[in-house]
Every structure is written in structure tokens, then in C-alpha cells.
Design a protein around this nucleic acid. Sequence first.
DNA 1: ATGGTCGGCCCCCGA
Length: 268
Amino acid sequence: MPFTVATWNINSVRLRMPIVERLLKEHAPDVLCLQETKVPDELFPEKAFRKAGYEHILFHGQKGYHGVATVARRPIELVEKRRFCEIDDSRHLSVRVQAGGKSVLVHNFYVPAGGDEPDPEINRKFRHKLDFVQEMNGVPASADESSASILVGDLNIAPQEHDVWSHKQLLNVVSHTPVETTNFEAMRKAGGWVDLMRLNVPAEQKLYTWWSYRAKDWEASNRGRRLDHVWSSANLLPDFTGYEILQAARGWQKPSDHVPVMAKFDLD
DNA sequence: ATGGTCGGCCCCCGA
């Protein structure tokens, strides 16, 4: 049995419970990291997760905005709910889980979207996004012979040319501007993180995890972006056996604009 | 074609 970790920005966990249950039933990840839960902790739908076999539930939520949660079929231990940029947004949660004799630290992130104007001088949300990514330098891929790290989430940046439907047309669009993509890749590499979704995929192959709600037909226009990511420490590479972007979920009833990404490891 | 659609929630903000 492989060890699987999935990430999904579900844009309101309460509204999206039916399709979250579908994911759990059809794909049964060992650990599921959710972003944009948009629910305060006291109203988190724990019962539905327990009923689906996910009895281990940790959340870091707030009213109305943001919010992350990590649920699992096996025990998870809370490590940290980190605060970034000295702002009390719920954007991070890390947990420890045992898999294949290793202790695995799983970070769940929701990076700020950054607003519309890609100029930190006039757009405080873009400034916040840049500062947040800078501060992620303080989250390295810690690892030794008995421990490893995984970092997943909606990181709201599509770093590579073929992580967007049109590199040229998105160069000045928040999520794909050079200042974002350059700093993002520098932070990832400095932290010792491996981009698992690109590891065995040619650079010229398009990869998307998000399709706008605003398209008339998201599938026909296919103007996607790879905003959701799965990273790991280098010592997990021998155990990494592949991943799947569950694109079909974009067409499920009342979908999120993001789809789940699920990575598999030969650990149990 | 410089629009368009969502979700939460207090009549607008963030994505």
C-alpha cells in the first residue's frame, strides 16, 4: 500500500463537502490538505470527515476568509500554526505523520493571492504576497535519515513558462510575474525543496491545477494555471512513485476552481 | 471582446 498525500483548495469546505466526500471515497488519500476552508474552527464539519473514515483532523481557520485544514486516516500530530508577516491570517498548518518507518512533516500552505495590480508600491496585497514568499525561506525541507518533509498547498504562483496557458499574455498578471516566479523558485531551491509535479515531466508540457470560474467553458478554453504544488525533501525521492492532477474534479457538481493534486510514495 | 463568476456575509470584499 502506498502512502498518498493530496492537496486541494476547496473554496469553502462547508459548501464543498459533497465533492470532498467524493474525493475521499474515490481516491482515499492518506492525508488531505485543504485550503480556503472559509470556516471558523468551531464550525468545521468534523463529523462528516469522521464518517468518511478521516478521524484525525486538524484545522487553522477563521471567519469568512482563508483557512487551512489537514485530515488523515492515520494519526497526525500538530506541529505548528505559523503566523506570517505579523498578520493573523490562517494560512499555514504543519503536522507530523508516520509513514514507512519515517517521520514525515507535512506543511499545508495558502499563500496570499496578491490582488490584481502587480506593483507592491500601489498594491498592499501584492506587497504582502512578496513578503509572505520571502518569509517562506524560514521553512526549509528539514530531513535526516529518519525524517522527511512534504510541502503542499495553494501557493498562488505558476513558476514555469508552461505552468500557464500563455506565458507572454500572463507576464504582467499576478501569479506569473517575473518578480513572483523568480523569488518563488529561489525560495524553493534555497529551502532544499523538490518540485515533485515537474520532476519527471518535460518542461514544455502544460500543467494546470486551476481554471477560472469566469470562463464560459473552462474545459474548451483551457486557460489554466499551475497554482497548487507538491514539494518534498530530497530524501523522499527514492520513495516517490508519481502523482495525479485530478482534473475531472473541475467538472464535478458545484466545483472549486482548483482541482486536487495527489502524490504517491512507496511508504506504508 | 479589457469582460467574465464565485463564496461569505452585511450591502461589498477577496479570489
